[in-house]
Design a protein around this nucleic acid. Sequence first.
DNA 1: TTTATCTGTTAATGATTGTTAAAACAATAA
DNA 2: TTATTGTTTTAACAATCATTAACAGATAAA
Lengths: 231, 231
Amino acid sequence: METTKTRVLLAEDDDSLGMLMKDFLLAKGFEVELCVNGKKAFDTFSKKDFDLCILDVMMPEKDGFTVAKEIRMVNKHIPIIFLTAKSMKEDIIEGFNKGADDYITKPFNTEELLVRMQAVMRRIQPANKDADEFQVGLYHFNYKNQSLEFKGNNQKLTTKEAELLKLLCVNQNDVLDRNFALKAIWHTDSYFSSRSMDVYVTKLRKFLKEDPKVQIINIHGKGFKLYVEKV
Amino acid sequence: METTKTRVLLAEDDDSLGMLMKDFLLAKGFEVELCVNGKKAFDTFSKKDFDLCILDVMMPEKDGFTVAKEIRMVNKHIPIIFLTAKSMKEDIIEGFNKGADDYITKPFNTEELLVRMQAVMRRIQPANKDADEFQVGLYHFNYKNQSLEFKGNNQKLTTKEAELLKLLCVNQNDVLDRNFALKAIWHTDSYFSSRSMDVYVTKLRKFLKEDPKVQIINIHGKGFKLYVEKV
DNA sequence: TTTATCTGTTAATGATTGTTAAAACAATAA
DNA sequence: TTATTGTTTTAACAATCATTAACAGATAAA
């Protein structure tokens, strides 16, 4: 299983500092997109997927707080770290209220930056990928046994059914990207694999239809979401 | 529905500072357990459930880093904030490596402490806890569900419809900038995306026409406003 | 007013997804 | 080996979705 690099959106208007930070982060194995002002920062954010944002507070065109506010409208959970020259308390407090996860006061050393990035990301860990038992509404799904239980009724699943359901469970209430699932289960994202996946979605929907609070929702052009309504 | 108080484990060997912080946090509605050294801190942690830990670094018997390490062995996710008199970078870095979520240098003001506690706790919220649900006049909109309910009638929405309605809801009674929405949803602000958006506005207006107090108003050259008349 | 631009709406088009059934494939027992 | 059974893929068709086209109406600038 391949682990993809952490994608960092870096917005810093000071060219030399920005380049330096970018090179440092690249050297540390991150994927970095550097933007020189707030306007470009949000543009870039809207075009690609990122795992973490580092925003300078004072930038031309659009300041870091505004960018953070816009990012939060679209994505409530992506970690945001502010960079600020001031260490003014008001600034810090405003930053947190705008949805920051952390902030760093310039000048900072690179080690500290790294360690704060790690701390902020440690909490974002998605559901345990290694788990093999899942509660899905009133259903209980055991991946290893390939079984799906509902009110004492035990339904045996095929390998592909179980694999797909597991991926959906790991991403419960969140989008499971179609191509990601295809590569993970079918090891190719060809047209026919995709159609095959659709067939399996239909099968899983039939298995899960007894509990109306459980739905597999299609996100057009993206993938599927196993949505489980809270009580 | 009663919301239980946030339970804070506070470890601080300076009596006067400890008492002061405890009283402040109590006044702010937290449940606080104050420990005067590291040994007692871990003892207390192992006896009760907590939501957040604030650990002074320098304490007799057992320093804050050691306590954090012990806590992390038992609980990987509880937020930990360190208090330290030093602002030495090495200390900060060691703290994070021991599993800290944040770090505050003495002297600090109470506002900053609060805001950091909130930031750190917001981070650990599981992704499905914060429901993307909105009340729009007599309508109830569930984003993750892609459904719009009106008087028991449930209307399924498409992905794009739901995304646009969500942005309108987030900016309820305020202008949703056209280009912002285009970038956020269509990832480009081209002419055709813009026309597509207009088509979706028409669709949403049809869905929302049952409640006359709910309107999507065009702000010429700017964008759209989801206007909900107050009672 | 005239003109260019922006918005409202409906319908047509192509792409994606939903579903069922048949075909192909794989594993196992006779 | 062949028959049997279960699984997965492919085919076929239906339904839905997002974009584009087309035209009408509204708005702001000249």
